[in-house]
C-alpha cells in the first residue's frame, strides 16, 4: 500500500480525484515487491509441478490451488499496475506495453491449466507456465523502469 504523507484519513474525501503523481519511488517499490512475490510463487509452482512431472504424475487439486495462488497474485499486480498508471506513473517501456505484459502474465497459468491433459505432460505444461511467468516478471520490471537500480 502506498502511504500518503498527510495520512490516510483524507483518502475518503479525495476518492474522486487521484493525486497527479503520488510518490513514483513508492509506486516502483510496490510493483517491485509484487514482482518478487509473483516470481517466487511462480518458481515454486514450477518446481512443484516439475517434481510431479519427474514422478510421472498428473496435476492434483493442490497443484490447481497453487496455480490459482500465482494467478491471483498476478491479478493483484495487474490491478496495482492499472491504479498506478492511471494515477500518473509512466512506465519507461510505455503504459500499453506494461499493461499488455501484466495481462499476459496473469493469463499464462490459467491458459496452461492442465485440466485436459491428465498425464505427466499436464504437469510439464504447468511447470513451463511457472517458468514463463517468472521470465515475464523480469520483463515487467524492465518495462516498469524500477529494475536497474
Amino acid at each position: 500500500m502506498v502511504s500518503h504523507p498527510s495520512g490516510g484519513r483524507i483518502e475518503s474525501r479525495h476518492a474522486q480525484c487521484f493525486p497527479p503523481s503520488p510518490h513514483p519511488r513508492a509506486a516502483a517499490q510496490v510493483i517491485g515487491a509484487l514482482t518478487i512475490v509473483v516470481s517466487v510463487a511462480a518458481l515454486l509452482l514450477a518446481a512443484w509441478c516439475g517434481l510431479a512431472t519427474a514422478r510421472d504424475q498428473p496435476t492434483k487439486d493442490w497443484h490447481m490451488i497453487g496455480m490459482a495462488v500465482v494467478t491471483v497474485l498476478a491479478l493483484a499486480q495487474l490491478v496495482v499496475g492499472i491504479v498506478q498508471v492511471s494515477s500518473g506513473h509512466k512506465p519507461t517501456g510505455g503504459a500499453v506495453v506494461f499493461l499488455a505484459y501484466a495481462v499476459g502474465t496473469m493469463l499464462i497459468v490459467p491458459a496452461g491449466m492442465s485440466l485436459v491433459e491428465r498425464t505427466r505432460w499436464g504437469s510439464a505444461i504447468a511447470t513451463a507456465g511457472g517458468l514463463v511467468v517468472a521470465a515475464l516478471e523480469l520483463r515487467l520490471v524492465q518495462v516498469w523502469g524500477g529494475g536497474h537500480g
Binding site: 491458459a111 496452461g112 485436459v116 491433459e117 498425464t119 505432460w121 499436464g122 510439464a124 505444461i125 513451463a128 507456465g129
Partner: peptide
Amino acid sequence: EGPGRLLVS
C-alpha cells in the same frame, strides 16, 4: 496429446 500437448501450449 501427451508430450504433444506441451508443444501445443
